[in-house]
């Protein structure tokens, strides 16, 4: 039991650090003139990859807390990122269609599906809460850059594996 607890604590600690680094990396992207309208959600990509690739299931309560922390750090509307990340997890793991998409089209399509649906639901909630329509172009730009960045990050994660494979085969 004690061993299980320490493992759980260690896993979550590492995950928290990864999320914090991803958050600050995402914030820093706004200094680049390329992302003039909106910055891509690196945090969503990292979260998706952790949900998909890590052996243990990530706690939903922890995901809500990360979202809350991100909202408090960035000064956004509290709870909005908690719900976005929660939806991302639910659409990635809990829907029967998610497995079909994953088997038929792969990870990139599943991420696109989960991310677009989650973000659109969040935008609807955002409009209801604020009574104002956000710039559609900025939302589209955000979706586009995030989806384009996904394979890049995926490749960067796989680079050590590829290098190791090359060395092992030699």
């Amino acid at each position: 039991m004690e061993k299980y607890n320490s493992e759980f604590f260690f896993n979550n600690l590492i995950f928290t650090l990864i999320i914090l680094v991803a958050s600050f990396l995402q914030i820093s992207l706004n200094f680049l003139s390329f992302f003039v309208i909106s910055q891509p959600y690196i945090l969503a990509i990292v979260l998706f990859l952790t949900i998909r690739r890590v052996n243990y299931e990530l706690s939903s309560i922890l995901i809500i807390l990360y979202g809350l922390l991100y909202d408090l750090i960035t000064g956004g509307l509290i709870g909005i990122h908690s719900l976005l990340f929660l939806f991302l997890k639910l659409f990635t793991l809990n829907l029967s269609i998610s497995n079909k998409i994953l088997k038929k089209y792969g990870e990139w399509f599943l991420f696109s599906f989960s991310y677009i649906i989650s973000l659109l639901i969040m935008k609807v909630i955002f409009v209801i809460v604020n009574f104002k329509f956000p710039d559609i172009y900025a939302v589209m730009f955000n979706i586009g850059t995030t989806l384009l960045l996904f394979p890049v990050i995926l490749f960067l994660i796989d680079v050590p594996k590829i290098v190791l494979k090359v060395f092992v085969s030699k």
Partner: peptide, 30 residues
């Protein structure tokens, strides 16, 4: 899961209330 979604929605509405405690917490974290 439904309960968690409901909690998040409540959080959003609490955030919209612009409470002083939350504002102070946000300032501290920033």
């Amino acid at each position: 899961n439904s309960l968690l979604i409901l909690i998040c929605l409540i959080l959003i509405f609490i955030g919209k209330l612009d409470l002083i405690a939350l504002r102070n917490l946000s300032s501290f974290l920033t």
